[in-house]
Design a protein around this nucleic acid. Structure first.
Lengths: 195, 195
DNA sequence: GTCTATACAAAGATAGAC
DNA sequence: GTCTATCTTTGTATAGAC
């Protein structure tokens, strides 16, 4: 399904998500969004009554798409814990290869207190869900002998999430291509080998 | 030296830095700053001709204060590599204990492309400098037997910086007290023990 | 569902009095 | 060095025609 085949509401969500990942929430406006979608300002308001509603809808969709994919791979018996871990890394690798983009929720977390409450809730739920999922995968890999790290799976889950989120914001600021791939290899080695 | 003893320019810098660490750059205005300093909007303009000038001055000061402290401990022969590492962690620990604050440059990196060019340069220089300093300390600790990690010091420096920056943005969004302390212990254990 | 027109507030910035 | 007053632009949001 290409972009033109989508309905207006979806195209607004796509453009808004892209703009937030590049510039943040408080730096963009209905005008920026409307121009990229190819409509006028009030048409956005017709689909989303306010900027906070639009922002919330963007994060909610992002969170749910992630959530469904993570749940699917966690429930797939064919997949190893390392398969799941590598799958988790793919979006970070994608954004890592883009000079301008970072994780949607990483961008929003940087201006967290300047976000509408409804958006704060979504962003918090995103991170909470990822931490729980990572903990589960790491615990499984530790128990079945795939992983060999010391310390609790919960602590390792924090390390993984924090590192990947941090890697994206640092790579964009420093303009270092390969920064995310590099740190991901380091991270992976801490999971595989015993200390 | 208390706040009232400082001159106006310094008080403006203090308030602006604090506001950026809480809310980001694009979400704050001369009015917010003026109100907290206890002056009026045009008085700020007298000291800093534009918002970009003020923003640049804030990051420059932050970067230079950090830089001087890091250089001092790196040149102190009495300090071990682990002393230096722990010293590096202290500001992150301080912000970690605050529900609202993150690193100034971490906040700005989240809205990097929506910053004035002069500010982007300062933020990039901050991260570049920290990566070089960390690599130097880690290399030294590895050579003198204090540290026992595998992989290049440069890769480990990335891991440290990314993790600490990510930990701050994640802890604020999730409201998890202890998140930063916890991940820092994990990080420390990866330096100390051989894999 | 999309548009033009408009209301209203807040932003950065300037001029000039004190 | 600080202020009042003002300018200009841009922001979110609304009303109502098509």
């Amino acid at each position: 399904m290409n972009n033109q085949a989508k309905n207006t509401a979806e195209r607004i969500l796509d453009v808004t998500q892209d703009l937030i990942q590049r510039r943040g929430y408080n730096a963009i406006s209905f005008n920026h969004i409307a121009e990229k979608v190819g409509i006028k300002k009030p048409s956005i308001v017709h689909h989303f009554p306010g900027k906070a509603d639009l922002g919330k809808a963007v994060v909610k969709r992002y969170r749910e798409v992630f959530s469904a994919a993570l749940q699917a791979i966690a429930e797939d018996d064919q997949k190893t814990a390392m398969d799941a871990f590598d799958f988790y890394c793919t979006p970070y690798l994608d954004y890592g290869g883009d000079k301008e983009k970072i994780c949607l929720c990483g961008a929003l977390a940087g201006e967290f207190l300047a976000l509408p409450k409804v958006m704060q809730k979504e962003v918090a739920a995103f991170f909470d869900g990822h931490l729980r999922w990572l903990e589960d995968i790491l615990k499984r890999g530790l128990e079945n002998g795939e992983f060999h790290f010391t310390g609790k799976p919960a602590a390792m889950a924090q390390l993984v999430l924090d590192t990947l989120q941090g890697a994206l914001i640092v790579k964009r600021a420093t303009g270092t291509s390969g920064h995310v791939v590099e740190v991901m290899k380091t991270l992976r080695s801490k999971l595989e080998k015993p200390e």
